[in-house]
Write a protein that binds this DNA or RNA. Structure first.
Length: 419
DNA sequence: TCTGGGGTCCTAGGACCC
DNA sequence: TCTGGGGTCCTAGGACCC
């Protein structure tokens, strides 16, 4: 085996992590330039149940940040402008970003709606050194979207990711190969992807606060205390992708492993009609997405959250995988009635499907005339919804009508037709 | 301050099988 | 008659990410 003493960046793996700055807020500013520079909160009305999806930098100065309850954000910053999210807009701009990236290099992986990894190894002849390449890419993104982004550059995906975070807002940062550990050492362990509130606390209790502290402990010790997470942390403290999610090839895209929808009521309820209408609607939404992906699920899971926030999940695996609204609903309904503490007020309901069958719905459906007819009916319904919107067709319509008359409210709070 | 919604991955116990 | 061991599936819960 040959060991190279000196490896220049020309021969090293080079990754970009590109992250859009305050993405949702910035897109909203494009649609309403009057929002620019002001404290803006995306996620809903200040008195609604819900959390902040994104906050402008002006709002962040008041302590507002994403995942914070909207009511809290309102208290911290009463003058903030609260706007509803528009996922279609963000999706549209995410596609624009993706297009620019794909025109830049073929090895692109969107990690979420507003961030991506690029493998730019070997592009120096085309774009020059990494910093130049990054600035070129930054210009292209800016030209195509009028949005700001930040780019981290490193020899590992992990360090590139941490790097883009440090570069924000609207910056580019390169960690020179070999300097990873030195770059990471002064950062809080919380900056490591995969270390959240709980792990941070556990690490702190051992006196580990900075990545540099972490780097002093050996693998065996960390594994003993933190299991697989500890093993991963040992590598991450050195800036290595080795093992785990970061260790995958860029661009190896796979389908979803699960599909779910859930709904938090604007007011907790024990009304069976409302509960069942909601479960029906959620089942339909899940079924629809299963069919869009051509998938059938073996495992159906109910999520149930009570007023006191206690939450249970109850799953059942069926003999015959399904993507049919009616079958999903019947499973969910049964799970609900088997597990609901009768009379208890419910805060949230969720429907979750997973465990795809290899041999798709087709084989299962062919030997069953009823299923085939259902599938045709659902395909027609999906088509109607495409043309006329979600409210056009609904198996839950009869359940829902009753509730709607009484409360003038959409039972699942979907972005329905505004008056 | 009163806590969304859509995901992924990990842990852990029990059933079941060889 | 004092109790193996590994593999896999199912289920429940929880940490974490955006």
């Amino acid at each position: 085996m040959q060991v190279r003493q000196r490896v220049s960046w020309l021969e090293m793996k080079t990754f970009f992590h590109l992250d859009m700055d305050a993405f949702f807020v910035s897109v909203e500013e494009l649609f309403d330039p009057a929002l620019k520079g002001k404290p803006v909160v995306v996620g809903g009305r200040p008195n609604e149940r819900g959390v902040v999806s994104a906050a402008s930098y002006a709002a962040r100065r008041f302590g507002v940040h994403s995942a914070m309850p909207l009511r809290t954000a309102h208290k911290l910053c009463p003058q903030a402008i609260f706007v509803d999210g528009h996922m279609e807009r963000y999706q549209e701009y995410s596609h624009k970003v993706h297009d620019v990236l794909c025109g830049f290099t073929p090895l692109v992986e969107m990690a979420s709606i507003d961030e991506a990894y690029l493998d730019i190894t070997g592009t120096q002849r085309l774009y020059g050194p990494p910093l130049r390449a990054a600035h070129l890419l930054h210009e292209r993104i800016s030209a195509a979207t009028k949005l700001n982004c930040s780019i981290g550059i490193a020899a590992s995906r992990l360090v590139a990711k941490i790097c883009s975070d440090q570069a924000k807002p609207n910056g580019v940062l390169w960690v020179i190969p070999g300097r990873e550990a030195a770059f990471l050492a002064p950062l809080d362990v919380r900056r490591i992807p995969g270390v959240g509130k709980v792990s941070e606390k556990n690490l702190n209790s051992l006196g580990i606060r900075k990545v540099g502290d972490l780097a002093k402990f050996d693998e065996a010790f960390l594994e003993q205390h933190f299991g697989k997470l500890g093993l991963a942390l040992a590598g991450k403290a050195q800036g290595l992708d080795a093992g785990g999610w970061f260790d995958t090839e860029i661009g190896a895209e796979e389908g979803p492993k699960s599909i779910s929808h859930e709904h938090t009521f604007s007011e907790d309820t024990a009304d069976l009609a409302q509960i069942e209408a909601t479960l029906a609607k959620l089942s339909e939404m899940v079924g629809r997405r299963l069919r869009e992906h051509g998938l059938s699920a073996r495992t159906i899971q109910l999520k149930l959250r009570y007023t006191d926030f206690s939450t249970i999940t109850r799953a059942h695996s069926v003999a015959r995988p399904t993507s049919l609204d009616t079958e999903l609903f019947e499973e969910i309904r049964a799970l609900f009635h088997r597990n609901w503490k009768k009379g208890s007020t419910v805060r949230l309901l969720g429907v979750h499907a997973s465990g795809w069958s290899e041999e798709q719905a087709q084989l299962d459906l062919l030997d069953d005339h009823t299923h085939e007819r259902w599938q045709r009916a659902l395909a027609a319904a999906d088509h109607m919804r495409d043309r006329f919107g979600e409210s056009a067709v609904s198996l839950a319509a009869s359940l829902r009508g009753k509730f709607r008359e009484r409360t003038h409210e959409n039972p699942v709070g979907l972005p329905g037709k505004k008056k």
